[in-house]
Amino acid sequence: MSKYSLPLYQSIAKELIQEIESGTYRRGEFLPTEAKLCKKYHVSRVTVRQAIKILVDEGYVVKTQGSGTRVIFSQHLKILERSSKIIPFSKEMELIGKNSSSKIKTLELINSNKQLSKELELELHSPVFFYERILYGDDYPYCFEQGYMPVKYFPDFNLDVLLTSKMYYIETIRKIIVVYSHQIVQAILADDKLHKNLLVPLNSPLLDVTHITYNDHNRPIMKTSVIFDSNIYEANFIKYKS
Rank of each mutant, 00 (worst) to 15 (best):
E171F: 04
A187E: 08
L122V: 03
F157G: 00
S100E: 14
E29Y: 12
K91F: 06
K63T: 13
V48G: 05
D57R: 03
P201H: 06
T47V: 08
S67E: 15
S67M: 12
V62R: 14
S2T: 00
G59A: 09
I212H: 04
L202Y: 06
T210G: 09
D160K: 00
S165I: 07
K91W: 06
P32D: 10
K166Y: 03
S44E: 11
S225Q: 07
R70E: 15
S5K: 09
T47K: 01
I173L: 02
Y142E: 13
K39P: 04
I134E: 03
K98H: 02
L159R: 00
S67H: 13
R70P: 09
F30N: 02
L202E: 03
Q115W: 09
R45Q: 14
V161I: 02
A235P: 08
Y131E: 13
G23M: 10
Y9C: 09
Y240P: 08
A190S: 06
R82F: 03
Q18D: 15
L206N: 03
S102K: 02
V226S: 08
Q18T: 07
I184R: 14
D160Q: 03
S230P: 14
V61T: 11
V128S: 11
I173T: 03
V185W: 10
L163I: 05
E234Y: 05
E132C: 01
S67L: 14
N111G: 07
F73C: 05
A35P: 07
K114P: 06
P32F: 13
D216Q: 13
S126F: 07
P7W: 00
S100V: 11
V62F: 15
K223F: 02
P205Q: 07
S102H: 06
F157C: 04
S225G: 10
L135G: 05
E81L: 09
I212C: 09
L122Y: 02
N158P: 01
G147Q: 07
I238M: 07
V179P: 01
S11C: 05
M1I: 01
M222W: 01
S22N: 10
P201Y: 06
V209W: 05
S74I: 13
S22Q: 12
E29W: 01
E123V: 12
E15M: 09
Q18V: 11
T24P: 06
V62M: 15
K78S: 14
E119I: 03
K114I: 08
E21Y: 00
V48P: 01
S11V: 04
R26K: 15
T224F: 04
Q65N: 13
Q10D: 12
K85R: 11
L6A: 14
T164Y: 06
N113K: 00
T164D: 11
Y168T: 15
N236K: 05
D57M: 06
F89Y: 13
V179S: 11
S165V: 01
P205Y: 08
P150E: 13
F157D: 01
T213H: 01
S22P: 03
L120K: 01
K14Y: 13
L124W: 11
F129M: 14
Y131F: 14
K40E: 13
Q183F: 06
K196V: 04
F73G: 05
T33H: 10
V200R: 03
K103C: 02
I79M: 12
L189A: 10
Q50D: 10
K98L: 11
L16E: 15
A51Y: 08
L80V: 11
S102T: 05
I170C: 05
P141L: 00
K14H: 08
Y142H: 10
V62L: 15
Q75L: 12
Y131V: 02
E81D: 06
